[in-house]
Design a protein around this nucleic acid. Structure first.
Length: 150
DNA sequence: GCCAACGTTGGC
DNA sequence: GCCAACGTTGGC
Protein backbone atom coordinates (compact mmCIF):
# COMPACT_ATOMS: atom_id res chain seq x y z
CA UNK A 1 0.00 0.00 0.00
CA UNK A 2 1.22 3.48 -0.84
CA UNK A 3 0.69 6.93 0.67
CA UNK A 4 -0.12 10.20 -1.06
CA UNK A 5 -0.91 13.82 -0.51
CA UNK A 6 -3.55 15.69 -2.50
CA UNK A 7 -4.21 19.42 -2.42
CA UNK A 8 -7.51 21.20 -2.62
CA UNK A 9 -8.51 24.78 -2.05
CA UNK A 10 -11.01 24.71 0.83
CA UNK A 11 -13.09 27.42 -0.87
CA UNK A 12 -13.56 25.01 -3.76
CA UNK A 13 -13.67 21.67 -1.95
CA UNK A 14 -12.78 21.19 1.71
CA UNK A 15 -12.31 18.27 4.08
CA UNK A 16 -15.75 19.06 5.50
CA UNK A 17 -17.26 18.75 2.04
CA UNK A 18 -15.68 15.33 1.71
CA UNK A 19 -16.86 14.37 5.19
CA UNK A 20 -20.39 15.18 4.07
CA UNK A 21 -20.11 13.53 0.64
CA UNK A 22 -18.09 10.51 1.85
CA UNK A 23 -17.07 9.63 -1.71
CA UNK A 24 -15.90 12.08 -4.36
CA UNK A 25 -14.30 11.92 -7.82
CA UNK A 26 -11.05 13.91 -7.62
CA UNK A 27 -11.83 15.78 -10.81
CA UNK A 28 -10.44 18.76 -12.72
CA UNK A 29 -6.79 17.75 -12.46
CA UNK A 30 -5.09 19.16 -15.56
CA UNK A 31 -1.46 18.41 -14.86
CA UNK A 32 0.24 15.46 -16.48
CA UNK A 33 2.38 14.48 -13.53
CA UNK A 34 -0.60 14.47 -11.21
CA UNK A 35 -2.69 12.57 -13.74
CA UNK A 36 0.00 9.96 -14.23
CA UNK A 37 0.11 9.24 -10.53
CA UNK A 38 -3.65 8.72 -10.39
CA UNK A 39 -3.64 6.69 -13.58
CA UNK A 40 -0.56 4.55 -13.06
CA UNK A 41 0.44 4.40 -9.43
CA UNK A 42 -2.59 4.62 -7.16
CA UNK A 43 -4.29 1.49 -5.89
CA UNK A 44 -7.61 1.07 -4.13
CA UNK A 45 -6.97 1.31 -0.39
CA UNK A 46 -3.98 3.66 -0.61
CA UNK A 47 -4.13 6.35 2.05
CA UNK A 48 -4.04 10.04 1.23
CA UNK A 49 -3.43 13.22 3.20
CA UNK A 50 -6.00 15.89 2.40
CA UNK A 51 -4.17 19.22 2.14
CA UNK A 52 -5.79 22.64 2.17
CA UNK A 53 -3.99 25.03 -0.17
CA UNK A 54 -4.34 28.70 -1.04
CA UNK A 55 -6.00 29.64 2.23
CA UNK A 56 -5.33 31.35 5.53
CA UNK A 57 -3.64 28.36 7.13
CA UNK A 58 -2.45 25.87 4.51
CA UNK A 59 -1.82 22.41 5.92
CA UNK A 60 -2.86 18.80 6.26
CA UNK A 61 -6.38 18.47 7.64
CA UNK A 62 -7.51 14.89 7.09
CA UNK A 63 -7.09 11.43 5.66
CA UNK A 64 -8.92 9.76 2.79
CA UNK A 65 -8.45 6.56 0.82
CA UNK A 66 -8.29 5.79 -2.87
CA UNK A 67 -11.67 4.24 -3.66
CA UNK A 68 -11.66 3.40 -7.37
CA UNK A 69 -9.55 2.44 -10.29
CA UNK A 70 -8.66 5.30 -12.62
CA UNK A 71 -11.30 6.38 -15.12
CA UNK A 72 -11.94 9.30 -17.48
CA UNK A 73 -12.65 12.64 -15.81
CA UNK A 74 -16.16 13.58 -17.05
CA UNK A 75 -15.49 17.33 -16.77
CA UNK A 76 -13.16 17.16 -19.78
CA UNK A 77 -16.16 16.40 -22.04
CA UNK A 78 -18.44 19.08 -20.59
CA UNK A 79 -18.46 22.01 -23.01
CA UNK A 80 -19.80 24.32 -20.32
CA UNK A 81 -17.07 23.45 -17.87
CA UNK A 82 -14.00 25.55 -17.31
CA UNK A 83 -12.16 22.23 -17.49
CA UNK A 84 -13.52 21.28 -20.90
CA UNK A 85 -10.71 19.96 -23.12
CA UNK A 86 -11.47 20.15 -26.85
CA UNK A 87 -8.50 17.90 -27.60
CA UNK A 88 -9.95 15.08 -25.56
CA UNK A 89 -12.68 12.65 -26.58
CA UNK A 90 -14.51 9.78 -24.89
CA UNK A 91 -12.69 7.43 -27.27
CA UNK A 92 -9.33 8.93 -26.36
CA UNK A 93 -9.69 10.59 -22.97
CA UNK A 94 -6.74 12.66 -21.91
CA UNK A 95 -7.55 13.15 -18.21
CA UNK A 96 -8.03 10.39 -15.67
CA UNK A 97 -9.08 10.51 -12.05
CA UNK A 98 -9.80 8.28 -9.08
CA UNK A 99 -12.56 8.42 -6.49
CA UNK A 100 -11.54 9.16 -2.93
CA UNK A 101 -13.33 8.16 0.25
CA UNK A 102 -13.40 10.10 3.52
CA UNK A 103 -11.58 8.37 6.35
CA UNK A 104 -11.23 10.94 9.09
CA UNK A 105 -10.31 14.49 9.95
CA UNK A 106 -7.09 15.07 11.83
CA UNK A 107 -7.53 16.21 15.41
CA UNK A 108 -5.94 19.45 14.33
CA UNK A 109 -4.57 21.16 11.24
CA UNK A 110 -0.90 20.28 10.76
CA UNK A 111 0.12 23.52 9.13
CA UNK A 112 2.61 23.99 6.33
CA UNK A 113 4.54 26.28 8.66
CA UNK A 114 4.94 23.40 11.09
CA UNK A 115 5.86 20.91 8.40
CA UNK A 116 8.52 23.26 7.12
CA UNK A 117 9.99 23.83 10.53
CA UNK A 118 10.30 20.11 11.30
CA UNK A 119 13.96 19.11 10.91
CA UNK A 120 13.02 15.59 9.77
CA UNK A 121 10.99 16.89 6.86
CA UNK A 122 13.51 19.10 5.09
CA UNK A 123 13.41 16.82 2.03
CA UNK A 124 9.64 16.45 1.92
CA UNK A 125 8.36 17.34 -1.57
CA UNK A 126 5.76 19.69 -0.19
CA UNK A 127 8.48 21.73 1.43
CA UNK A 128 10.47 22.26 -1.72
CA UNK A 129 10.53 25.82 -2.90
CA UNK A 130 8.16 26.55 -5.73
CA UNK A 131 6.43 23.23 -5.45
CA UNK A 132 3.14 23.39 -7.28
CA UNK A 133 2.33 19.74 -7.72
CA UNK A 134 -1.20 19.06 -6.50
CA UNK A 135 -0.67 15.33 -6.01
CA UNK A 136 2.49 13.82 -4.60
CA UNK A 137 3.72 10.57 -3.10
CA UNK A 138 4.51 10.38 0.62
CA UNK A 139 7.02 7.80 1.83
CA UNK A 140 5.89 5.50 4.66
CA UNK A 141 8.50 7.10 6.92
CA UNK A 142 7.19 10.60 6.29
CA UNK A 143 3.62 9.39 6.64
CA UNK A 144 4.34 8.03 10.13
CA UNK A 145 6.37 11.06 11.11
CA UNK A 146 3.64 13.49 10.07
CA UNK A 147 0.90 11.45 11.74
CA UNK A 148 2.99 11.53 14.89
CA UNK A 149 2.70 15.32 14.88
CA UNK A 150 -1.08 15.17 15.10
C1' DG B 1 14.09 20.72 -30.38
C1' DC B 2 14.54 25.54 -28.71
C1' DC B 3 12.68 29.17 -26.24
C1' DA B 4 9.76 33.37 -25.59
C1' DA B 5 5.29 34.38 -24.23
C1' DC B 6 1.70 33.30 -21.60
C1' DG B 7 -1.18 31.09 -17.94
C1' DT B 8 -1.54 28.97 -13.37
C1' DT B 9 -0.40 27.72 -8.64
C1' DG B 10 -0.09 28.88 -4.16
C1' DG B 11 2.53 31.02 -0.23
C1' DC B 12 2.74 35.27 1.76
C1' DG C 1 -3.04 41.49 -4.48
C1' DC C 2 1.80 40.42 -5.42
C1' DC C 3 4.95 37.65 -7.54
C1' DA C 4 8.25 33.58 -7.88
C1' DA C 5 8.30 29.33 -9.85
C1' DC C 6 6.63 26.34 -12.82
C1' DG C 7 4.03 24.12 -16.88
C1' DT C 8 2.19 24.65 -21.51
C1' DT C 9 1.83 26.46 -26.10
C1' DG C 10 3.25 27.44 -30.52
C1' DG C 11 6.31 29.78 -33.90
C1' DC C 12 10.49 28.92 -35.96
Amino acid sequence: MAYWLMKSEPDVYSIDDLKKDRLEPWDCIRNYQARNMMRDDMRIGDEVFFYHSNCAEPGIVGIMTVASKPYADPTQFDRKSKYYDPKSSPEKPRWQLVDVRFKRKLKRNISLRELKSHPGLSDFILNRRGNRLSIMPVSPDYWELILGME
